[in-house]
């Protein structure tokens, strides 16, 4: 018996993913329609953004391209949660129907096993779209390209993703204890729409909430300051990778605690 290390999990994930994609392709109509739907969602999101900025060329000192930067950045940062952690949305159903019990009898990490079951391919489209938007904004702000700035970009994207994943984990895991946890998921998910605006446009109350309670300001605003306001970076931005990892870890622990306390329904 080998120890189940990172490589083991990576291999399992790869295999499950390959099978999952294969089976998704077999529902061809479903695949095509959801791809088209995804494209339209992104385009319409972009159009409403564009209309706002045709009327207000800048918001609290944030110009069009800077806002576009935030927008693209947040789309990319939201990709991992969409692709890899989408099964959080089904958690509530699994828990109430009692089906969740099947995840309890496998010799591998239950969080991993559960999340590995669903890979949402629509997230990839979002990633491509986000990259285009970010690239366009990047070019127009004249940020330039160097190895340091690319590394900074990657780190801040990973950090931002961790925040969103952690938020969704926490929201989903409430179903282990609460009966009506559906609201919480939806509410938290709605909040992510605010992630693409600079936190300075909110009053101090909301700014506090979005920083410390539901930390969506970390999804685009705080990390983007590294690129857009390099002379005036708050401490929170520097700390955000650490906070992100910690926050993700806490959300993982809470999720696992819920899963361990789960005992199924009567049969």
């Amino acid at each position: 018996m080998q120890k189940r290390g990172l490589l083991f999990y990576f291999n399992i994930y790869r295999k499950i993913l390959a099978q999952d994609l294969k089976s998704k392709m077999s529902y061809r109509a479903d695949f095509i329609i959801s791809t088209i739907g995804m494209i339209f969602t992104n385009i319409s999101g972009f159009i409403s953004f564009w209309i706002i900025f045709k009327n207000f060329p800048s918001i609290k000192g944030w110009g069009y391209y800077e806002m576009l930067f935030l927008y693209g950045f947040s789309l990319i940062a939201l990709t991992p949660v969409q692709c890899f952690f989408d099964n959080n949305w089904n958690l509530r159903n699994h828990v109430y129907s009692g089906d969740f019990i099947k995840y309890c009898f496998r010799p591998i990490n239950i969080f991993f096993y559960y999340m590995s079951e669903v890979f949402d391919i629509k997230g990839l489209g979002q990633f491509v779209f986000g990259s285009l938007v970010l690239g366009y904004a990047w070019n127009n702000i004249n940020l330039g390209i160097s190895i340091t700035i690319i590394i900074k970009l990657i780190i801040s994207l990973i950090t931002a993703s961790l925040f969103m994943i952690a938020i969704m984990n926490l929201a989903a895991s409430t179903c282990f204890w609460l009966l009506n946890s559906g609201y919480i998921m939806v509410m938290v998910f709605r909040f992510k729409d605010y992630a693409k605006y600079p936190a300075t446009i909110f009053n101090s109350g909301f700014k506090f909430i979005f920083t410390f309670i539901i930390p969506i300001a970390f999804i685009a605003y705080y990390p983007s300051l590294v690129f857009l306001r390099p002379d005036d970076i708050p401490v929170l931005t520097w700390l955000s990778p650490l906070i992100g990892i910690l926050f993700f870890y806490i959300s993982y622990l809470v999720w696992m605690k819920g899963a361990k306390s789960y005992s199924g329904t009567g049969s």
């Binding site: 089906d99 099947k102 496998r106 010799p107």
Partner: peptide, 23 residues
């Protein structure tokens, strides 16, 4: 240590499949 224990047991629940639905 449920993970290690799970290695040595098998479980079947009548009407709930544990297999991947689409595969």
């Amino acid at each position: 240590d449920r993970n290690k224990y799970a290695q040595n047991i098998g479980v079947v629940f009548g009407q709930r499949t544990q297999l991947w639905w689409a595969l």
